[in-house]
Nucleic acid binder design. Structure first.
Lengths: 165, 165
DNA sequence: TTCACGTTGTTGACATGTCAATTATTGCGG
DNA sequence: CCGCAATAATTGACATGTCAACAACGTGAA
């Protein structure tokens, strides 16, 4: 990241990262890969579900009781529709969710939690919240938390505006 | 995350997340999944390499010219050894890196960049740095950047201490 | 030397994600 | 009613990551 054309003459337009910037950048990448990994480990060890499975269970559990559309789930989670579809099929095989044809739209599928699905979220939620609290909220002061949220929002907003993200 | 046992009587030990906390948590997860995705898109569109491939190319390019050990690479990137191994095999097939038996240790493999590998990093680096700058460093003030790094470090340190991460 | 053990790295089976079709249905203009 | 573009979701091929087993090599003590 210090730039493989440091000494070049011609197109040295890009402003390479300083040492400080490199450190922050490294920290960000380790965070982005480490956080999902930590969540995954805790959930699979303690509750037998992966992080993505828990995300679906949690999302469906907070939806109206008559079920959610697969597409809405994909939009909510910001995932590919096919990813949701594959995952739902596997979760249906495990008996965590059910898919039944939507009443109003013949194309749609209404997703709901099974009894086992509810049991699993309820069993997994406390440990998950505890992990999140210990890892994120406890180590930082309220001011730091507020600032963190602002910074992340700025980053994401800027990226969306520029077509990245 | 608001807690699926809100009204329970017995084991309501976990401190559920407030609305504010839920928002930050959502922002963090979207960040953790969106950042790698943005990097991946930019790199594959502009340079024909995936984000992970670029990470390896960059890491090897900054190593001593006689090559790096596969294990050191895995440690540096905080990846599984087998992940590095699989990826290196694919990158060798594409002609980006070479693996030759280490001179001192018969088990080791010294990884080096091929000419095409060097060409690829050099071509990809400017666009990559520009993306990082536009997405991360430009939208935030120096104070915000410094605070961001501190916060991320605190989070990671605390998580490592507690055996999470 | 020799043998047990730790280290280095690879492999294969499997879980998961992405992308490009494909299917089925809806809604709408003619 | 018919045709046809848009929508909802699935499917299959493929890329990638994980995990556990394995093979090959080094190291040190008996």
């Amino acid at each position: 990241m210090s730039g493989p054309c440091e000494g070049d003459a011609e197109p040295c337009e890009p402003r390479w990262l300083s040492i400080e910037e490199q450190h922050l950048w490294l920290e960000l990448r380790e965070f982005a890969s480490g956080l999902p990994r930590a969540i995954d480990r805790q959930l699979s060890q303690d509750s037998g579900v992966s992080g993505v499975e828990y995300a679906v269970l949690a999302a469906v559990s907070e939806a109206p009781p008559d079920g959610v559309r697969s597409g809405d789930l994909a939009a909510l989670l910001e995932w590919e529709k096919s990813r949701v579809s594959h995952l739902l099929r596997r979760m249906e095989c495990k008996g965590l969710v059910t898919r039944c044809a939507a009443s109003d739209d013949g194309r749609g599928q209404d997703i709901s939690l099974t009894g086992a699905g509810w049991d699993t979220v309820r069993a997994a939620a406390p440990g998950h919240v505890t992990l999140v609290r210990e890892a994120i909220f406890d180590p930082l002061t309220p001011e730091e938390l507020a600032q963190l949220r602002v910074s992340l929002q700025k980053i994401r907003t800027a990226a969306v505006e520029k077509g990245l993200w």
